[in-house]
Structure formats: C-alpha cells, structure tokens
Nucleic acid binder design. Structure first.
Lengths: 338, 338
DNA sequence: CTGTTAGCGCATTCAC
DNA sequence: GTGAATGCGCTAACAG
C-alpha cells in the first residue's frame, strides 16, 4: 500500500536529488534553508509520509518495541501498557503487543518470531507455564535488549522491574495477623512464577515472625480456570472452617474468595478477612470486604520502558542485570477509586 | 539488530544462490526436494528468521494490522483486543496497538503516521472528541482498508461492527420501567459518540413507548474525569430526589452511580434501580445492585478483524459500507462471573 | 550546499 | 532446477 508519493517523486517535482530531499526532511544542517522550505512545503502538501520499512531496513532500527504479556484483559497489564505507551510516545517509538495467554508454546513461537529484527527492544512478563528459557536466551544472543517486568525470568541476566513482592506478601499477612486472624490461608498464583514465590515467602515469614506455624494445607495454588479456582476455594473453606483470614496473590483469587465466602455464608470481614492484590476500582467496590494491595502498574510499565529505551537509543544490547523494585500500596480503606 | 544469518549467509554455506534459498524457504515448486531439505535443515539449525522489514518492503505487505482505540484499561477494549489478536494469529498477522486516550490531536497524529505504509489494515474505535474526520478520509485515500468497531465514524464509508446500541438502550430502559421505575435518569457517555447517540435514542423511545415524558434534566453527559462524574451524579440525585432508576451508558458511570447512591444513603435496588453497560465480573460483584448490559466485546473484536483480514488478504482496499450489529445481553441476575 | 553511488535483505523476472 | 540481475524506498559515505 505505498502511497505514490515518495522521495523520488518529490525529488522529481522539485528538480532536486533524492538525497537532498531526504536530508531536507531530516532537517540536516547541510542543506540550505530555502531548499528545506521548498521541500517541506511540497511534502506537506502531498502528504508525504516516509516508508517505515525502507527506513528501518536501511538504518537497522525500527523505532518499535515489543511487549509480550500473558493477557491484556487484566488491570495490571493494561495499566502497565499505558505506562509503556506513554514513554514510547515520548521517544517517538511504536509499541507492538503480543499475548501469550500464559501458553508456553505461544511464548516460544513469539520469541522465535521476534528474532527477525522486527523490534529494537523487548518488554516481557513471562508466561506462567514457562520452565525452559532457551527461547529467551536465543533472543539475547540475537542482541535484542530485554527488560522483564512483574513476572520476571530469574534465569536470564538482564534488567528487571518488579513490585516488592516479598515485602508485599509480608505486609499483607501481617495486616491480617494484626487484625486478629490466626488461621490465614494463602491463595497462590498459578505455576511457579517468580512473583508467586516471593509473595509466598513473605507470607511464610510473617507467620513465623508472629510465632505461627506454616501449614501447607492452608496454601492453595490457583490456575487460570476461574471456575475451578472457585471450587477449590470453597472446598478449602469447608475443609478448614477455622480459616479466619485469606491472603490472595492475585485479583481473580481475591474476588473468588469473596464469592466463596458469600456462598458459604461466611461474613466478611467479621468471620473471614480478605486481603489481596487488586486494583483500586475493585477495592472500592468491595470495600470494606477486601483490603487491597495495589501494585504501581503504570509506574512499572513506565520504568521498564524507560530502562529499555535508554538502552535502545544508546544501542546497548546487553543490559546490566539490575533489579528495580517499586513499592506496592496497602489500602485498608479504599475510600477512593480512580 | 539483524541476526548475522540471512539469505546470503545461508546461500554461501550451501553453495547455492540467494534466489534458490529464498525459493526453497517459500516451498516453491520449482526447486528440487533435496535442495529444499538441505536449505531447511540449515535454516532451522542456524535459527534463520527472515527480516520482516526487507520482506515487507519488497512485497509491499507487512502482515500487520493496526488497532487504534481510546484506552486499553477498559474491559470492552481489552476483550476486543483478545478477539482481534486471536484472528490475527490465525492469519499469521501481527497487531500493533495505538492509544488515543480520547484525545483528538493524538488520533490525528496516529492517523498521519499510519499513512506511512506500516500496516496493511486498520481497526478503529474513534476518540470521543473527534469532530473532523479529514484524517480518516486521508487514510482511505491512501488505500488503507479500515473497519470501525464500537465507536464508529458514520461519516466515513467503510465496514463497521457494533453492538445493537439502540435496542440495548431501549431494553435497558424498558427493564427499569417494567420494574416500576417512573423517573429514569440517563447517564450518557462523553462527547457525541455514535454509541452514545444510539443508546440515548433507545432510552427516549422506551420512555415514549411507556407514555412517559422525556425530561432533558434527567440526562447527564459524563466525561473522562471520574471525580467530576461522581460529583455530577450526586448533584443530579440530590436535585431530583424522585429519581428511581438510572440507566448508565458506560461502566464507569454505572459504578459512579452505585457509589453516589451509597453515599447518599439511597438503597439499591429498593429506592433506586441501576442498569448499565458493564462486564460480567463487575456485574457479579455488584449483584443484585446492578443489572447489566454486556456487549459481546470479544466477538466484536473477532468479527471486525475477520472482515478486515478478508479484505487485506484479497487486497481490497475499499470495504463495502456495511454495518454488522451484534446482540448485547441483559443480565438481571448476574450469577456467574467469567 | 548538492549530487552520485552503493547497499540494507529480500522476492522476482529473466536467462540458462 | 538454478543463478544473475533488478529494485522496493530509503540513508549514508564520498565527491565535488
């Protein structure tokens, strides 16, 4: 679909060489102001738009970054995208999005494809099923700069941006314990995700700090099937009626807990207190039934994009393996929704 | 960031010409099976990936579609993206996303940029502030196939996929009236969006059908500022205490109504009944306070993408100006969240 | 300050 | 069945 207007046609119309037109449009200092003006005028009039592919091919730079995430229908990721998009726009970069649906095979296929030089850098949150990381190492061998955010891959050495997951887990659990809970269940996110492990460790540490035993039976590992999660939560609450607190690692599980308690007639927060990772809107709706830990999703996206774009514009393909951790916020009373 | 492995290097290693290698990889019938096998083997071994830009430049086809939407942090759009992405993947197409943040200037800038041949087709939901559509007409002049979805632009002649907004508005209002409401307020989405107009017309028609007057003071036009919306809703409810039903045109306004009623101590659904466009998850949380009209977001994305990709693969740049309307669903009792 | 030349990686036409 | 040559549109090195 190439517009008929390109450098060649402009050059012909203006009786100039293609090179001069190209330079004029790039505001090169080695072209006379008058010529620049003539070129610009005609380009604007004819609505000239450079062919991005030709330019990318030539400069070996596409001004595009890729974002690989499990889902977009998720508050955290959609907010993160907003942050990413904001930074990208400021740098005049484009954002191309790929969804893995938490499917390892898709992630591999996408990674394989990205080898093709379509993007200059990659932001990624790994799929929960991922165990083998050869596909990610291949990307690195291809000199593609990568920044992981939220669901990081610890096995790959590069920059990472996360929430303070360990501390969040600790604080969340502590919050329940200080509110008087003695039998706190933990609903874990599926797979063996880095974030799940850290939050769980925080949970265990908080229990220990309060002299309570860690009971494996109180820890439930959820999946992507919400129906099944609901059943599992219900069964857990029935099996262990002494449960008086639930710490949910992700929003879906927090909502699932809420529904399960309602169905079982457990009053919230009197009989069971729930705390979970969630966004402010949900928090406001479930207030006071749900205490919320909110991740700075927008900022995580922003920071990750900033780090990536700094590397890309400096043509650094290998990023230092440093970890940036942003603070989450705990809202016991989510009075305002944004 | 081109991988060092390209057609040239493959050709050298195999003692073949670039042309033959290219043909072999495309499974051309005019190359011997043995050669094909040799080529494929080496390509796989070296992890060859064609350079997308070179290929796009040469074939004048990028295998990429653009999606321009106001926000991604929105259930409707994120679900629609899932649908789009699904179809794109089936066709081996890529999806590049642009956000307007409902800002007309951004929409124009994006449209201008898309003229550059970066994408083969465009899916679009217009920004609410858009009044002038020259930028969209320019895209059409550039032979870029466009399919509008949800927030369509009636002034541009091309394919459109929407929900049955008029009927949805009618049914929603009727639902309230049949439940006994006599003073139904309508919370309108910002700007003069096509969807807002249609829903509003349905609202007005339902009132008329029930012999009730259309009262302009009961119609509130919201914006993107949720704080301000909350204030406006509260003021409306205070000014017109007889209001016993609210029909909200978008989810944010439905939630805002819910909060406003709570703050004013109006019991829901006893004193005030609320019905609004919303997704099932929110519906389940607010059940029975909120009756929901749910748009088939995923299907709308899917259908729009199917229509667009059909045109793209057939190299039809101009789409027939036909309108596909999908049914919304009304959930008086949203018992299950997906 | 401007023009000429070369080539990014690939697909394709034309020879053989 | 294979190779050589051409050009997509653009940028950059080199001349003048």
């Amino acid at each position: 679909m190439p517009p008929a207007v390109n450098l060649k046609s402009l050059a012909q119309a203006l009786n100039l060489s293609i090179a001069t037109v190209s330079r004029a449009l790039q505001d090169s200092h080695e072209v006379s102001p008058q010529t620049k003006e003539r070129v610009r005028a005609l380009a604007a009039e004819l609505n000239y738009q450079p062919n991005a592919y030709a330019s990318s091919l030539r400069r070996n730079l596409s001004k595009t970054i890729g974002v690989v995430i499990p889902e977009v229908n998720n508050h955290f990721f959609s907010l993160a995208i907003n942050g990413i998009e904001e930074v990208a726009r400021q740098h005049d970069f484009h954002v191309i999005i790929y969804l893995t649906h938490d499917d390892y095979a898709r992630e591999v296929a996408i990674a394989q494809y990205l080898t093709g030089g379509r993007i200059d850098g990659l932001l990624m949150s790994v799929a929960s099923g991922s165990q083998d990381f050869a596909h990610l190492h291949k990307l690195q061998e291809n000199k593609l700069p990568i920044v992981f955010f939220d669901r990081v891959c610890e096995e790959v050495s590069t920059a990472k941006v996360t929430t303070n997951d360990y501390e969040s887990g600790f604080r969340a659990t502590q919050h329940l314990l200080e509110a008087g809970c003695r039998h706190v269940a933990h609903l874990l996110v599926s797979g063996n995700l880095s974030i799940g492990r850290s939050r769980m460790q925080g949970y265990a540490a908080a229990l220990q700090a309060h002299g309570l035993p860690y009971d494996e039976d109180l820890v439930l590992s959820g999946g992507n099937d919400q129906e099944r999660n609901a059943t599992l939560i219900k069964e857990l609450l029935e099996r262990r009626p002494e449960i008086d607190g639930i710490f949910a690692s992700v929003e879906h599980l927090a909502i699932g807990s809420y529904h399960a308690c309602q169905r079982l007639g457990r009053s919230i927060p009197e009989q069971v207190k729930i705390i979970g990772f969630s966004n402010l809107e949900i928090a406001a709706l479930l207030n006071p039934a749900l205490t919320t830990i909110t991740q700075p999703a927008y900022d995580i996206g922003r920071e990750a994009a900033v780090i990536l774009l700094r590397a890309v514009t400096r043509k650094k393909s290998v990023l230092p393996a440093q970890s940036l951790m942003l603070e989450s916020e705990l809202f016991a009373r989510a009075s305002t929704a944004r």
